[in-house]
Amino acid sequence: MIKVGIVGGTGYTGVELLRLLAAHPEAELTAITSRKEDGMPVADMFPSLRGHVSLAFSAPEKARLNECDVVFFATPHGVAMAQAPELLSAGVRIIDLAADFRLKDTATFEKWYGMPHSCPEILKEAVYGLPEINRDAIRNARVVGLPGCYPTSMQLGLAPLLAQGKALVNESTLIADCKSGVSGAGRKAEIGTLLAEASDNFKAYGVKGHRHLPETTQGLEAIAGRPIGLTFVPHLVPMIRGIHSTLYARILPESRDIDFQALYEDYYRNEGFVDVMPKGSHPETRSVRASNMLRIAVHRPENGDLLVILVVEDNLVKGAAGQGVQCMNIMFGLDEKLGLKQVPILP
């Protein structure tokens, strides 16, 4: 059994980790930390876990995280990098759901997250936790920095176009028009996510710049092996969970005869958590709710020179906790789907 610890288990990604790991046949939940809720049974905070999780929250200094095989950080940015050196020296592997180990350039990290990076040497060895792209590197990683929820949808939506060794689309004018439910903002009191503010409303934000843009650009350029240009506009929509990303790419004249539907199907043929839907499909966020599945539909309106790629995922599962468990499975040599076979819930 894999002894698992979770740092910061009181947020939405934390409770998702608990939900998934409680049903994982090879995971043993060993510790979950919260200084404020020290001593409180997890099931008292999250009644959905009654009968499934018997742990109580404990203050970090009591949690004996160094006895775990792997520790997940479902914490604000900056926490994982502060604790990483001690855990790694004890032989513990780390999966961080925040941004501490996503961006390889420390100056870029400091610009977008407003704090210095405290362990750049560990950052150098950290692996970006997008299994469909970095599976081999994840397998031997000591530290995995999970992608953000938006970047997961954008990178997996555009990867087949960029991974062909030559440009098929105009890679300097890619556009990502993305929508997220309010759980993406975290489990905290904030005016913009109050019911009276977010319900019956739809708005863009971060248009002048969003911290997920440099992360996504970094990932797409690694896939393509060359510079790319991306315009990313996120939106908040009045739903609890889910991401819908509409991606636009202009087809180059020499690529007009390519069957892009077949290209996507071939690229993801052996991926258990990416579903390339039949031609003409319109995936819905509810078709992936509470699951680790990401669904993609490829459109070419009027057989013109514009590709429209539709991508849906659950931001808390494939966009966060589920992807973390997927990475854990890879790191410990398990079936990648173990503990992640939940059927999406409907309605």
Rank of each mutant, 00 (worst) to 15 (best):
M1I: 13
V4A: 15
V7H: 13
T13I: 04
T13M: 04
V15F: 06
E16Y: 05
A22Q: 08
A27E: 10
T30V: 04
K36S: 14
E37N: 15
E37Y: 15
L49S: 05
V53D: 04
P60A: 09
A63G: 08
A63P: 10
R64I: 11
R64A: 15
R64G: 08
L65P: 07
N66D: 15
C68S: 12
D69C: 08
V70M: 01
F73W: 13
A74T: 13
T75I: 07
G78K: 03
V79T: 15
A80E: 09
M81N: 04
A82Q: 11
P85W: 06
A90R: 00
A90G: 06
A90N: 05
V92P: 04
V92W: 03
I94N: 04
I94S: 05
A98N: 14
A99V: 13
A99F: 14
D100M: 09
F101P: 07
T108A: 13
F109N: 04
F109C: 06
F109T: 09
M115P: 02
S118G: 08
I122T: 09
K124L: 03
V127D: 09
L130P: 06
E132H: 00
I133T: 12
N134E: 13
R135G: 01
R135P: 01
I138W: 03
G148P: 02
Y150L: 01
P151R: 03
P151Q: 08
P151H: 04
T152C: 14
Q155L: 08
A159F: 06
L161I: 07
L162P: 02
G165Y: 14
A167F: 00
N170M: 00
E171P: 00
S172E: 15
D177T: 11
D177C: 04
C178K: 02
G181E: 12
A185G: 05
A185L: 13
A189Y: 15
L194M: 15
D200M: 07
A204I: 05
Y205L: 10
Y205T: 09
E215Q: 14
T217Q: 06
G219D: 08
G219R: 10
I223D: 12
A224S: 11
A224N: 05
R226V: 02
G229N: 13
G229S: 13
T231I: 06
F232C: 07
V233C: 08
I240C: 00
I240P: 00
G242E: 02
G242D: 05
G242S: 08
T246R: 15
L247I: 05
Y248W: 10
A249F: 12
L252P: 10
E254P: 00
E254R: 05
E254A: 05
I258D: 03
Q261L: 09
D266T: 07
Y267P: 02
Y268E: 04
N270G: 10
E271L: 07
M277D: 03
K279H: 08
S281C: 06
P283G: 09
T285A: 10
S287Y: 11
V288C: 12
N292F: 14
L294I: 06
I296F: 15
A297G: 09
A297N: 01
A297S: 09
E302W: 02
L307W: 13
V311C: 14
V312K: 07
A321C: 07
Q323L: 12
Q323H: 08
V325C: 12
Q326N: 13
C327D: 12
M331G: 03
L334R: 15
D335L: 11
G339C: 04
G339T: 00
K341Q: 14
Q342S: 10
Q342W: 02
I345Q: 10
